[in-house]
Design a protein around this nucleic acid. Structure first.
Length: 562
RNA sequence: UGUCCCGUGGUGUAAUUGGCAACACGUCUGAUUCUGGAUCAGAAGAGUUCAAGUUCGAGACUUGACGGGACAACCA
């Protein structure tokens, strides 16, 4: 009854930090977070985890969350990605209002800050090649060595840096480095490169700049410029934090400083989650684009039939920790079933049609039988489905020689056609050459019409069906896991491509669906009874209906059958 | 031979900050149903990587092992 009686919902360690910071005043600021994608690819479900966190914390604590494109590397970034990223965030149900920012908005301030560091003798221009700088850095277990240019005079550094940006030097010939500590046990503090020369055009600033800041020199500062209080990122940036803090120390003029907190990134079984690998799959045409329904991208999941709610629910369940875990994709499948179970109408669709002829049913007669659209939700109402002498059933639902515990149709057995009548199998036609069953002959019991209450005749099996005369043809795409290995990218001796599942896409044509589906629109979702959840694909047209199977229903018979 | 992070049922997370380990998924029973789905009821499954210490009491604290991960891109 009381609030206290309920177990307190546990909050993540990040939320605990935020709550503590707020308690201590948070420098007089409300929570302000940011989601900072680089526009060099499409968002995937791992990004959704970060989005839910940053937007979620802001929402929960009455703060704000900015969208900031981390566009400091013009050679990899494109506008195409900017637009797609915005669509995906909105689709998930989050909004950054007018706060759409770009790291490139801060290029001038960042440049000025670099100049300031040079003047404070905390940065210098290095003329060495990348290879030389790299060897001088040492290794994680060996200290680095100082560059011969480290002691360059301030004026010379200033002059060189300005000339770098004027385009007087080639790419790779000079870099600007922060002067920190070449012997630090943290590699990131060994005089990190903060500016490099890039002559490619930037998707927003064009050719205005010839020098571009590195991630470490842009990210924390951008947070600072925007007044971010909590900068939430994934675990691999943990070792960057001392550097993040070092730059903030040079920059801050009051008590305010953004705080970086790291959490575990999302790993899913049977898929890959790095943008580079996903890009490889797209470029090498292992999949049909970023929005291929087998991809873990948000646009792929959307096309597959996933709902934002199911993704958010999944993310909620897996939580935020510092443990590098690999999450089971079957949990995602659970959350989408849970969601679709409530929201989708039930329909009949036959994937592998087998014709059943009901011999004692009058030719030419059509009855409209009434079916419940969703037993979970009465408000979704009922619909009429035509029934007649010839219907299609699922090929798997008939067996000439049924195994033990087979509840479906077989010679001499009875089943119910859902919503219609109980039928009995009296015979079948078999192709002598191929051994394939081509038709099944049945009789029906007119007394068993659904809804009639006098009958206590019971059958074990209930089948879905589609009237042969009224059926609409459809193409159905069945998806399986993209990879056959649980952890395709975690194998040292094999490339992830070797684990691609050759059966990840099966296209079925000549499927038969009930006539009410004729005008279904792309992304419309249904439960094909006894089969699974399906949604209309973008490829669907008026003359060629195309469905994607989002996820099958759990199938205990398939399990028994194993 | 470095620095930092992490180690709780099969999996993912909890444990009110030290009081005999909880939840979800999955698994297995059973009930029920005109979806072998869903739903409902129930069960099995970890003594918290190991060891020592502090304490009346440790999954939580300390130390040390062991195991896993991150860090040596002019990527983010």
């Amino acid at each position: 009854m009381r609030e206290n009686d309920k177990p307190k919902p546990s909050i993540s360690f990040i939320e605990q930090f935020i709550a503590e910071d707020l308690k201590e005043g948070n420098n007089g600021r409300p929570v302000h977070t940011r989601f900072p994608p680089e526009p060099n690819g499409y968002l995937h479900i791992g990004h959704a985890k970060a989005i839910c966190l940053s937007f979620g914390m802001a929402q929960k604590y009455g703060g704000k969350c900015n969208l900031r494109f981390d566009d400091t590397n013009p050679v990899k970034e494109e506008v195409e990605y900017v637009d797609a990223i915005k669509d995906d965030i909105h689709w998930l149900g989050f909004d950054w209002e007018e706060r759409e920012y770009y790291a490139s908005d801060y290029f001038a301030r960042l440049f000025d800050f670099a100049v300031e560091l040079i003047k404070k003798n905390l940065a210098y221009v290095d003329d060495q090649t990348a290879a030389v700088i790299s060897t001088q850095k040492g290794t994680p277990s060996q200290p680095g060595q100082e560059s011969p240019f480290r002691k360059r005079e301030v004026d010379e550094n200033l002059d060189l840096f300005y000339r770098m940006n004027k385009g007087e030097f080639d790419e790779g010939s000079h870099v600007l480095r922060a002067k920190i500590d070449m012997t630090s046990p943290n590699m990131h503090l060994r005089d990190p490169i903060i500016y490099r020369i890039i002559t490619s055009s930037h998707h927003r600033t064009g050719s205005k700049w010839m020098v571009y800041p590195m991630y470490d020199f842009a990210h924390g500062q951008s947070d600072y410029f925007e007044g971010i209080t909590h900068s939430l990122c994934t675990l691999e940036f943990e070792v960057h934090r001392p550097l993040y803090d070092w730059f903030i120390d040079q920059l801050k003029t009051s008590d305010y400083r953004p705080r970086q907190i790291e959490f575990n990134r999302l790993n899913l079984t049977y898929t890959v989650m790095s943008k580079r690998k996903l890009l490889d799959l797209v470029r090498e045409e292992k999949v049909n684009g970023w929005d291929d329904p087998r991809m873990p991208t948000l646009c792929g999941l959307r096309r597959r039939g996933y709902t934002p709610e199911s993704i958010k629910r999944f993310i909620d369940l897996i939580g935020y920790t510092k443990v590098e875990a690999i999450n089971d994709i079957s949990l995602l499948e659970h959350t989408i079933r849970e969601d679709l179970n409530i929201r989708t109408p039930r329909v009949f669709g036959v994937l592998n049609p087998l014709k059943v002829i009901i011999k004692n049913y009058p030719e030419g007669k059509v009855e409209n039988v009434e079916l419940i659209n969703n037993p979970e939700d009465e408000t979704m109402g009922k619909r009429l489905v035509p029934f007649c002498r010839e219907v299609y059933i699922e090929h798997d639902d008939f067996m000439e020689v049924p195994p033990h515990k087979f509840f479906r149709l077989a010679p001499g057995t009875e089943v119910r056609l859902k919503g219609a009548y109980i039928i009995k199998c009296e015979g079948f036609k078999k192709n002598e050459k191929t051994g394939e069953i081509e038709e099944v002959y049945c009789t029906y019991d007119p007394e068993t019409r659904s809804g009639g209450n006098t009958l206590d005749k019971k059958v074990k099996g209930t089948l879905h069906w589609v009237s042969a005369k009224h059926a609409v043809d459809a193409e159905v795409r069945l998806y399986d896991r993209l990879f056959s290995h649980e952890d395709p990218s975690g194998q040292k001796c094999a490339d992830f491509r070797e684990f691609l599942n050759p059966e990840s896409l099966k296209t079925l044509t000549g499927c038969k669906v009930e006539p009410s589906l004729k005008s279904a629109m792309p992304l419309e979702k249904f439960q094909f009874q006894r089969l699974g959840y399906f949604c209309v694909d973008y490829d669907s047209t008026e003359t060629n209906l195309v469905f994607n199977r989002t996820v099958p229903l759990k199938d205990t018979w398939a399990k028994i059958n194993k």
